[in-house]
Design a protein around this nucleic acid. Structure first.
Length: 640
RNA sequence: GCCGACGUAGCUCAAUUGGCAGAGCAACGGAUUUGUAAUCCGUAGGUUCGGGGUUCGAUUCCCCGCGUCGGCUCCA
C-alpha cells in the first residue's frame, strides 16, 4: 500500500501500486497535464515509474529547473529522431540539456544548413502531433552494444563500453527511434510543444580538437510559448546591451586589425571611466593596507622557467623574443615579479602579512577563434595583488579579501553573489596538513560573514585551494570576476622565506587575488550591466550644458567652469542647433544630466536640468545643481 | 587552430538572371538664432576585405588568404 509524502507535507495513501502519472492525476487534472516526471526520495524518475512502496514524491513540472531540463533533454531526443528520419546516415552521439536549451551532436557527411534546420523543426512538429509514447527499457551491455552497432551507431557503442560495469543501462524508444539515455524523459512527444532550433555549429567529439568534428545543432525548449518569447526578448535585450556595439556608439574603445586581434584601444571616454575605476581601486586598497608595485612587462625567460610557467602555462604564452642573445618573455602573469621583490631582502615574521598590489598588464595567447570583444582578449590589465603571510594568518587575510571583494562589487552595482570554493585535486603539491588547514580557513572566512558557498570538490588548482565569486548582472547573467587563490607552489619554487619568532626560516603562504579580474573584461561587463546608462560616478561625461542660442554661450561656459571646479566632468554644446536636436543627441549618448541655459537661466544665474530619464527639474540655481551632482557622484550609486 | 555564416562609404543597410555601386544617419560648407528626443539646402565620401580565376563584362560565380560573428566544457 503506497504511502506517499508530498512536498507540502500532505500524505496520500493508495490501496494498490500505481504510477507517478496516476498520482499526479489523483491530485488534479491540471497537474497531470503539466507533469513531466517525478522525484521519489530525491531521485528523478519517469512518470511511468511504478510506485509500490512508501516515500516522498514530488511531481516535476516545467516551472522547476529540473522540469525544464527534462523537457529540453527530451526535446533534444525528439530532434535526434527527426534528424535520423530525414538524414538516415547521420550518427547520433550525445544530446544533453544545457544552460539555455539543449544541443545534439551528429556525425554527418556535411554540415547542416539553415534550411535543414527548418526541415528538422517541421519534422519535429509532426512527431509531436503523433504524440508517440517514450518508453524506457533496461538492457544488458552486450545487448545494447550489439543493438547500436546493428543500427550503425558506433559512437553510442563506444559510449556504452565506457560506462562502468555495475551501472544499469537504459534505452528510450519513441516510434522508430531508440537512444541510449539515463533519463528521465517526458512520457510522450506530445508534451514537447514549445521549442526552437537556434543554430548549427561544429563541435569536436568529446570536446577534443584531435577528434573528429561533429555537427552540433542548438535549440531551446520551454513549458509554454510565453516563456519562450520571454527568452527571445532577453536575447534581444542582451544584443542591445552588447558592449561591442555600445563601445562604438559611446566611443569608449575599439579593437582594430591593424593593431591586432584581442588588443584593446581605450578611447578618451573609455579611458576616463578606467581612470575613475582605477582611482577607486587605489583608494580602497590603500585603506585596506595594501602597498602598490610597478613591475616590467617582460622578463628573462629564466624567470618563467623558475616559476614553472614555462612548463604548465606555455600554451597561453606568446613566443619569447631574443635580445642580446638572451630570451625574453612578455609576461602572462605578474606574480614572479612580486616574488622577486619579496626575495630582495630578508623578511621577518613581523613584516607579514605583506599585501602588494599592481594594476598589471599581462599578455596571453588566446586562439584567434575565441577572441570576443573585451571579454576574451590577448592583452589585459589585472587588478592583481599578492599577499605573503604566515599560515596562521590565512583566515584573517582571506576574510579581509572577501570584505574588499564584496565592497568593490557592490559599489559597481552587483548585489547578487555566488561563492565557489574549490578544493584539492588529485594531482597537487603541498602536504595534506597544509591543504586541510588552508581549506578550513577559506571555509571559515566565508561562513563567518554568513555567506553560503558551493563546494567544487577537487576543483582547485594543483598549487592550492581557491574561492571564486560570481556576480549576476542586470539581466540575470552570471560572470566570474573575482578569484582568491592560495599558492603552496611558487614560494617553494622561488624558495622564499621569513625568519620566525623562533629564529628559524619558514616558508610563507602566498595568496593571489584579483577582484575585478581583468579591467577590460570587467569594463565590458559594466557596459552590459548598465546598458551604457552608467551611474554618475562612472559616467565619462556627467553633464552637458546646452544653449538655446549662441547668445547664452558665455553663461554656458561659466556653468561648465563652476561645475568642473567642483570636480565634475562637464562639457558644453554650443552648436547652432535647435535644443531638441541637442537633447536627442546627448540622450542617445546616455549622458546623465543635460543642463539647458537660455534667457531665464542666464538672468537668474541658473540652469534647467533634465536627467537621463527625461525628468525636468525646472529653473535651478547653479549652487543647487552643483550640490546635487556632487552628492550623487560621491555616493557612487546608481540613482537614476 | 577547427566547423559554419558573413565581409559594400565612419555607422545601418540597398543594388533584378552576372550589365554604369546607391540611400539614410554621421562628416564638411551654407542658410536658419531656435525652450526639452532629428530645421532646410548643398558638398564630399568607395581598390565593394586582399589576391587569383571564369567571363565581352564580377559587389554578384569559383579558388586561396585575411578579418568579424556564432560555436568547439557542461558527460550516455
Amino acid at each position: 500500500m503506497p504511502r506517499l509524502t508530498l512536498p507540502d507535507g500532505t500524505i496520500k495513501t493508495f490501496d494498490a501500486p500505481l504510477t507517478v502519472e496516476q498520482v499526479a492525476a489523483s491530485i488534479g487534472a491540471g497537474l497531470a497535464r503539466a507533469a513531466l516526471a517525478g522525484r521519489i526520495d530525491g531521485r528523478l524518475v519517469d512518470l511511468t515509474t511504478l510506485l509500490d512502496g512508501d516515500g516522498s514524491l514530488e511531481i516535476i513540472t516545467p516551472t522547476s529547473a529540473e522540469g525544464l531540463e527534462i523537457l529540453r533533454h527530451s526535446t533534444s531526443h525528439l530532434m535526434a529522431q527527426a534528424v535520423k528520419e530525414l538524414f538516415p546516415t547521420a550518427q547520433v552521439t550525445i544530446g544533453p540539456a544545457v544552460a539555455d536549451g539543449f544541443y545534439y551532436d551528429f556525425d554527418y557527411e556535411r554540415p547542416f544548413t539553415p534550411e535543414d534546420l527548418e526541415a528538422i523543426e517541421t519534422r519535429m512538429a509532426l512527431l509531436v502531433s503523433q504524440d508517440l509514447r517514450i518508453e524506457r527499457e533496461v538492457m544488458s551491455r552486450d545487448a545494447a552494444v550489439a543493438l547500436f552497432l546493428g543500427l550503425g551507431e558506433h559512437y553510442k557503442a563506444e559510449i556504452i563500453r565506457e560506462i562502468p560495469q555495475d551501472q544499469e543501462l537504459s534505452l528510450y524508444r519513441q516510434g522508430t527511434f531508440v537512444d541510449l539515455c539515463r533519463g528521465p524523459h517526458v512520457p510522450s512527444t506530445g508534451r514537447l510543444k514549445v521549442f526552437k532550433l537556434t543554430r548549427v555549429a561544429g563541435a569536436y567529439w568529446r570536446g577534443n580538437a584531435n577528434n573528429k568534428m561533429l555537427q552540433r545543432i542548438y535549440g531551446t525548449a520551454f513549458g509554454d510559448k510565453k516563456a519562450l518569447s520571454a527568452y527571445l526578448t532577453l536575447l534581444e535585450e542582451a544584443a542591445k546591451r552588447d558592449h561591442r556595439r555600445l563601445g562604438r556608439e559611446l566611443d569608449l574603445f575599439s579593437i582594430q586589425d591593424e593593431a591586432g586581434g584581442g588588443l584593446v584601444l581605450w578611447h578618451p571616454m573609455g579611458a576616463r571611466m578606467r581612470q575613475v575605476i582605477e582611482t577607486y581601486w587605489k583608494e580602497t586598497h590603500g585603506q585596506a593596507g595594501y602597498e602598490f608595485l610597478y613591475t616590467p612587462h617582460m622578463a628573462n625567460l629564466d624567470l618563467w622557467r623558475t616559476s614553472g610557467h614555462l612548463d604548465f602555462y606555455s600554451e597561453s604564452m606568446f613566443n619569447p623574443m631574443t635580445v642580446d642573445e638572451q630570451s625574453y618573455q612578455i609576461r602572462p602573469m605578474n606574480c614572479p615579479f612580486h616574488i622577486l621583490i619579496y626575495r630582495s631582502k630578508i623578511r621577518s615574521h613581523r613584516d607579514l602579512p605583506l599585501r602588494w598590489a599592481e594594476l598589471g598588464t599581462v599578455y596571453r595567447y588566446e586562439m584567434s577563434g575565441v577572441l570576443h570583444g573585451l571579454f576574451r582578449v590577448r592583452g589585459f590589465t589585472q587588478d592583481d595583488a599578492h599577499i605573503f603571510c604566515r599560515e596562521n594568518q590565512i583566515e584573517e587575510e582571506i576574510s579581509g579579501i572577501l570584505d574588499l571583494t564584496l565592497q568593490t562589487l557592490t559599489t559597481f552595482g552587483f548585489t547578487d553573489f555566488e561563492i565557489n570554493l574549490s578544493t584539492r585535486p588529485a594531482k597537487s603539491v603541498g602536504s595534506d596538513e597544509i591543504w586541510e588547514k588552508a581549506t578550513t580557513a577559506l571555509k571559515n572566512a566565508i561562513t563567518q560573514r554568513g555567506l553560503d558557498f558551493i563546494e567544487d570538490v577537487g576543483g582547485g588548482a594543483f598549487y592550492g585551494p581557491k574561492i571564486d565569486v560570481k556576480i549576476t548582472d542586470a539581466i540575470g547573467r552570471k560572470w566570474q570576476c573575482s578569484t582568491i587563490q592560495l599558492d603552496f607552489n611558487l614560494p617553494e619554487r622561488f624558495d622564499i622565506r621569513y625568519i620566525g619568532e623562533d629564529g628559524e626560516r619558514h616558508r610563507p603562504i602566498m595568496i593571489h587575488r584579483a577582484l575585478m579580474g581583468s579591467l577590460e573584461r570587467f569594463f565590458g561587463i559594466l557596459i552590459e550591466h548598465y546598458a551604457g546608462h552608467f551611474p554618475l560616478w562612472l559616467a565619462p561625461v556627467q553633464a552637458v550644458v546646452l544653449t538655446i542660442t549662441e547668445a547664452y554661450n558665455d553663461w554656458a561656459i561659466q556653468v561648465q567652469e563652476q561645475l568642473r571646479a567642483a570636480g565634475l566632468r562637464v562639457e558644453t554644446d554650443l552648436r547652432n542647433q535647435k535644443i531638441s536636436y541637442k537633447i536627442r543627441e546627448h540622450a542617445m549618448k546616455k549622458t546623465p544630466w543635460l543642463l539647458i541655459v537660455g534667457e531665464r537661466e542666464q538672468a537668474e544665474g541658473a540652469v534647467s536640468p533634465r536627467n537621463r530619464s527625461g525628468q525636468e527639474l525646472g529653473l535651478t540655481s547653479i549652487d543647487m545643481i552643483k550640490q546635487r551632482l556632487v552628492l550623487e557622484a560621491s555616493t557612487r550609486t546608481a540613482t537614476q
